[in-house]
Amino acid sequence: MIQVEGLSKRYGRTLAVDNITFGAGRGEILGFLGPNGAGKTTTMRVLTCFLPPTSGTARVAGYDVLAQPLEVKRRTGYLPELPPLYPEMRVAEYLAFVGRIKGVVKQKLAARVSDVIEKCALKEVRTTLLGRLSRGYRQRVGLAQAIIHEPQILVLDEPTAGLDPKQIIETRGLIKGLGGDHTIILSSHILSEVQATCQRVIIINAGRLVAVDTPENLTARLQGHATVYLQAEGPAEQVREKLERVAGVVAVKPHGPPDGRPAFEIEVAKGRDVRAELARAVVHGGWPLLELRTMGLSLEEIFLQLTREEQEASPVEDAPKGKQKEAVQ
């Protein structure tokens, strides 16, 4: 449904998106992950024909965003970061307006409006002014607006930003429910978000693609990096010193909350399992070992690690590029 090849977007001198290639199939929920300013919004704006790409191609539902923008727009629903609401309009009236400009035929309009009101649980605010709605309702109206014309593709920019936990769970459920019929791209800088809803994750940092995989594979791929949680009874400083001396340990950090017994997060070098050595070291010191377990990597850590690797690798990559630029100038 979505094919993006070699997409770049330049704002003046800054390169917001740098040669990104990815795709999404029918009915897939694709997560776009990256820190703020990574280029997520820019990529989404290119996909929705709000911005033209500087180079590369993007095809949505088989239509090129530059050559046939109207066809693309007819088939995409878009929820920008800030829901595009007119504060002086009422909910149902606004949805009808969006339906009309999105090309919903007159006979179906009323049915579509009540359908999305139902789907997004907006019944009790049907006639409320948009300007008076709470953050959670605004986001839901934004979502309703995006699906009013039954688009094949949904582009959601941070759909759960600013919502409270209950609303986040509701919105996630809503998005998952839409997944069957729509291809969905959603962006987030919160990783648990993506982990919960998406079948595939694209990690993007500083405009570049860092990784594309399922959340499970990403976790597996980096499992060697694991941290170990350890709690023992004894003087914190001495235990720590002892642990630091174990071969393969990279760093030992205290882990709260301290209840008198020191607990540590031990970062272990890639590909090594030092749990046995750690246990031995503690027991050797004469302290009772209370707990020892591998901490599963959250997407947060994966993300940090991937972007860290990227940063470490990039100076080497950038060097020839810089020279090229000079040569051109």
């Binding site: 704006r45 929705t48 024909c49 709000f50 109207l70 727009k73 007819r74 995409t76 878009y78 920008p80 800030l82 595009p84 609401l85 007119y86 504060p87 969006v98 400009i101 999105k102 090309g103 607006q145």
Partner: peptide, 11 residues
């Protein structure tokens, strides 16, 4: 208000 984004991404 950002609603221009709605108009410019509509057909």
């Amino acid at each position: 208000s950002g609603t221009i984004e709605l108009l410019l991404t509509s057909p």
